[in-house]
Computed example of a mutant assay.
Amino acid sequence: MGSLSKAAVTRAAVTVTAVTLAASGCGILGDGSSRNLDVISVSSPRFRDGAPLPHDYSCEGKLGNPPLRWSGTSGAKSVALVVDDSNPRTGSEVHWVVFDIDPNTTELGESDVPRGVGGGFARQGRTTAGKVGYTAPCQAEGSYRFTVYALNAKLDLKQGASLAETLDGIAAHTIARGRLTAATIG
């Protein structure tokens, strides 16, 4: 590996995966095929699409993740949520990955992890920073995307699965997708 650390190589691999998936026309995730994905409607009672993310949900706030609501996941075997940003200076960063969400779940509470397939809580994967759980965004510039994916299978990955593993699993099983975007941090 030369002088690159394992963490630097992992970060580079995840960035390449995210950029490749974004270039496929499917947002950060999607299998890149020509099939059309169904659309999921995603909203929040705390901010509208294109509006700033309320400061309380940033790294300087105290509320954790914002509440979300979605519809359009009927027929899914599980649901996944990815929170990422598109910062022109630092590149894309994944702030949260939640997978194996019960497909009957239609909302996520503030500072909450939704119910999982088969009961209990959904599982969380590692972020770009290598942490498990919601990592609140800090950069005032760029946009923050809250993307919900309907999947045709349960991923069956372990809590704390690597970012590459979870992104690949979500991309391979996506049948519908919807996004709510915060333009900046307010």
Score class of each variant (00 low, 15 high):
Pro114Gly: 10
Thr105Ala: 10
Ala183Phe: 01
Ser5Pro: 06
Asn65Lys: 08
Gly30Arg: 10
Thr147Asp: 15
Asp112Glu: 15
Gly186Glu: 05
Thr10Pro: 00
Gly186Trp: 04
Thr127Lys: 09
Asp102Val: 01
Leu63His: 13
Leu81Pro: 10
Ala22Asn: 15
Gly91Lys: 02
Leu53Ser: 04
Arg115Gly: 09
Ser24Tyr: 06
Thr73Trp: 04
Pro137Cys: 06
Ala12Arg: 14
Leu163Met: 07
Ala182Gln: 10
Thr15Arg: 14
Glu107His: 14
Pro54Trp: 04
Glu141Gln: 01
Asn87Cys: 11
Ser86Trp: 12
Ile28Tyr: 12
Gly75Met: 02
Leu29Trp: 08
Leu157Cys: 11
Gly109Val: 13
Val39Ala: 04
Asp168Phe: 06
Arg145His: 12
Pro66Met: 07
Tyr134Trp: 14
Arg89Glu: 04
Pro137Leu: 04
Thr15Asp: 03
Gly130Pro: 03
Ala7Ser: 15
Gly72Met: 11
Asp84Thr: 13
Gly186Met: 01
Thr10Val: 00
Ser86Pro: 03
Arg123Tyr: 05
Asp49Glu: 02
Gly160Arg: 12
Ala129Trp: 13
Phe99Asn: 05
Leu163Trp: 05
Leu157Asn: 05
Asn87Ser: 06
Leu81Met: 15
Ala80Asp: 13
Gly160Tyr: 03
Arg145Trp: 03
Asn36Trp: 08
Gly61Phe: 10
Ala136His: 11
His173Phe: 09
Phe121Ile: 00
Leu68Ile: 09
His55Glu: 09
Glu110Thr: 15
Thr90Met: 04
Lys62Ala: 08
Val132Glu: 03
Asn87Gln: 04
Trp96Phe: 07
Ser44Leu: 04
Pro66Gln: 13
Arg179Pro: 05
Phe99Glu: 14
Ile40Thr: 03
Thr20Gln: 13
Ile28Ser: 08
Asp168Glu: 09
Glu93Ile: 05
Val113Glu: 03
Ala23Ile: 12
Gly116Trp: 00
Pro88Ser: 01
Ala164Ile: 00
Leu21Gly: 15
Arg46Gln: 04
Ser43Phe: 05
Ala23Thr: 08
Pro67Ile: 04
Ser33Val: 08
Ala161Phe: 10
Pro103Val: 00
Ser86Gly: 14
Thr17Val: 14
Phe146His: 13
Met1Leu: 10
Ala182Tyr: 03
Gly142Asp: 10
Leu163Thr: 03
Ile28Glu: 12
Arg123Thr: 11
Ser24Phe: 05
Val9Trp: 08
Leu81Ile: 15
Ile28Arg: 10
Ser58Glu: 07
Asp84Ala: 15
Asp112Phe: 11
Ile175Tyr: 04
Ser58Asn: 12
Ala51Cys: 02
Asp84Leu: 12
Phe146Val: 09
Ser34Asp: 01
Gly160Ile: 06
Gly27Cys: 11
Arg69Leu: 07
